[in-house]
Design a binder for these strands. Structure first.
Length: 627
DNA sequence: GCAAGGTC
């Protein structure tokens, strides 16, 4: 029988796909790597007919890139980094994975790639093929690619029956990113460290053997830029005084305030004139000119993505993005939750979500809630989740798999499991429903409104305990057209206030929105710029904020002073690279062209930075002396 | 000693 080797991006996919294609009758063997298993079974592929199949995997990339030996740190003038030869390097684990591929493909007639169907997955597929060809040259030309976006059986079988080829354009796009990130990162990191390292070392009070690294990275700098930008908006903020009019109306023993439809104005005289005019024409009588009642709802959350998980664990539990992702990873390995790195916020239509809800009925925290979702009573019954707009074509939204009961002793894992589960149950619930009433008063020439909300059905809010929606005080009982005697009419002043310092949750949102990093790496970039002493976490009245250090601020301003056309600390450069990568994927540009363009740009920036290096030093000295 | 991206 022909032999087919299938290779996935990680063991969990290999295991699931082997289970589906073998109809549950595969046998498992160990591999040289502890992360990887080999699964044997038979399957009927269109290119080979009935075949002996081995399904295995790697665990992420098989190779890393670095500059060749001759261009190590200190061994060459820095500008050579931009065109030095690049070599492939392997960790011990990667060598074990590659040797498994080589051994397993020795007798194979075909190889089929089952890596995730995203850009990086395509490149990992290419790496796998290179390793396989080293083990067995005859595989050349017998390479196939499975296209799949989730692990539903019929979908996976369809993918196996409709093999495609690797997309070389996507492979080229990833290689482009790798080369540009490597060369620009290494060049500017060496430059900055050599320029500022000894000064920073003294200022941080480090010992000789703890030379600081002052790194540049295409993601690190924009991340730092966001934090510095917020910090300075607060520093530079000048409060402005504004004026407004507020009416209050008797409401039982209490009063209700009506807000001015103009909000507030920054000119005191204008407000005073309007106020006096109203007082003259209407004294203390206003008329009800409008009462609008409508039903309103608060939407249940969208299916859970990695970025949302990190943002909310930071908000609800004050966990760092890295801590929440680490805990999610552990929960995934233990089988409690689904794969935690996903951009998808739409559940595949065939997924059996009700049995996942059923799993949760035994939990003493939300079990009763899960039961009512499935069996009533009441109107909050299981409802298919809302659909978001993102699909990474590789993984479904994050959801609980099995109930953890009392099986978790790690605090962070407990919290993340609770969050994932409550979020999932909320997704499968009805929106919260309420009723809002808005009343408008006319006083003189001006209009004023007040609103009241009655929450009628809490629904998902009962399980999504962090979100608040409360019934407000009722509006005074007045009829349309009725005159009402005011208990007061006042002209008041107030001041605009500065924004708050950056929270980790906001930073994650900004990075995601600007394409800085990926779901799997955003947390690492935030960690990295803390390690580098560019930003620090600071606790202020219950909240933890991210504050830039002297060094962090200096780097941003130093490069600003040099005046590169595309600021390093802004997301623009990185986004431009994404656009170019997309052009490569669509066949409108080639790799060589894009690499040359981007590297030329970085070389030019390096030249400018190098001739203006005194500006970096001066900026650092200046800012240091101010603090 | 340097990047960012996968994954464990």
């Amino acid at each position: 029988m022909p032999r087919v080797l299938c290779v996935a991006e990680k063991n969990s996919i290999a295991k699931s796909v082997a289970g589906i294609l073998s109809g549950g009758r595969s046998s498992r063997r160990d591999s040289p790597s502890k992360y990887i298993k080999n699964y044997d079974f038979t399957f009927d592929f269109p290119f080979s007919g009935s075949s002996d199949v081995t399904m295995t995997s790697v665990a992420g990339h098989l190779t890393g890139l670095d500059l060749d030996q001759a261009h190590g740190w200190g061994k060459c003038p820095i500008p050579q980094v931009f065109d030095a030869p690049i070599v492939e390097i392997h960790t011990k684990d990667q060598e074990k994975m590659a040797s498994n591929i080589k051994r397993e493909c020795r007798n194979a007639d075909y190889i089929m790639i089952w890596t995730d169907c995203d850009r990086e997955g395509e490149y990992i597929g290419w790496e796998i093929v290179q390793a396989a060809l080293q083990g067995n040259r005859n595989l050349q030309g017998n390479v196939y690619r499975a296209i799949f976006s989730h692990l539903e059986s019929r979908h996976i079988i369809h993918a196996a029956k409709n093999p495609k080829r690797l997309d070389q354009r996507a492979v080229d796009a990833v290689r482009t990113r790798m080369e540009v990130d490597l060369r620009s990162g290494v060049a500017f990191t060496r430059f900055l460290t050599e320029l500022l390292g000894s000064k920073v070392e003294r200022d941080l009070g480090l010992k000789n053997n703890q030379r600081p690294i002052i790194s540049y990275g295409t993601c690190q700098f924009p991340t730092l830029g966001f934090v510095v930008d917020r910090f300075e908006r607060i520093q530079k903020f000048i409060p402005e005084t504004f004026w407004y009019i507020v009416l209050s109306v008797p409401n039982g023993p209490d009063t209700t305030n009506f807000q001015w439809e103009r909000g507030h104005l920054f000119d005191r005289l204008t407000v005073a004139v309007i106020f006096e005019l109203c007082l003259e024409t209407s004294r203390n009588i206003a008329k009800v000119t409008d009462i609008k009642s409508k039903s309103t709802s608060k939407y249940r959350p969208l299916p859970l993505t990695t970025v949302e998980l990190q943002k909310n664990c930071s908000r609800f539990y004050k966990m760092s993005a890295k801590a929440s992702l680490d805990a999610a990873e552990k929960l995934y390995q233990k089988g409690y939750i689904s794969y935690p790195r996903t951009e998808t916020d739409i559940f595949p239509s065939k997924m059996d979500l009700q049995s996942l809800v059923e799993q949760q009925t035994s939990d003493n925290r939300w079990g009763d809630y899960a039961k009512t979702l499935l069996n009533g009573p009441g109107s909050n019954r299981f409802k298919w989740p809302r659909a978001g707009k993102n699909d990474d074509k590789a993984h479904p939204p994050i959801h609980p798999i099995i109930s953890c009961g009392a099986g978790l002793d790690n605090e962070n894992e407990k919290k993340v499991y609770e969050y994932v589960t409550r979020h999932f149950l909320a997704c499968c619930s009805e929106d919260s429903k309420g009723h809002s009433t808005t009343m408008t008063l006319k006083w003189g020439t001006e209009f004023f409104t007040a609103s009241g909300i009655v929450v009628l059905e809490r629904n998902f809010l009962d399980v999504y305990v962090w979100m608040k929606w409360e019934t407000t005080k009722q509006l005074p009982n007045l009829a349309l057209g009725q005159d009402v005697e005011l208990s007061s009419s006042l002209m008041k002043d107030g001041q605009t206030s500065p924004p708050n310092h950056m929270t980790e949750s906001e930073l994650i949102l900004l990075m995601d929105a600007n394409g800085i990093g990926t779901d799997a790496t955003i947390a690492e970039h935030i960690e990295k710029i803390q390690q580098r002493d560019y930003i620090k976490k600071k606790k202020m009245s219950k909240q933890t904020y991210l504050i830039p250090t002297t060094l962090g601020i200096s780097l941003v301003h130093g490069f600003e002073a040099i005046g590169l056309e595309d600021s390093f600390a802004k997301p623009f450069l990185r986004r431009q690279m994404e656009v170019d990568l997309k052009l490569i994927c669509d066949g409108n540009k080639n790799k060589l062209e894009v690499v040359n363009d981007l590297i030329t740009k970085y070389q030019e920036y390096y030249g400018l930075t190098s001739t203006n290096q005194n500006k970096l030093v001066e900026t650092y000295m200046n800012i240091k002396s101010l603090i």
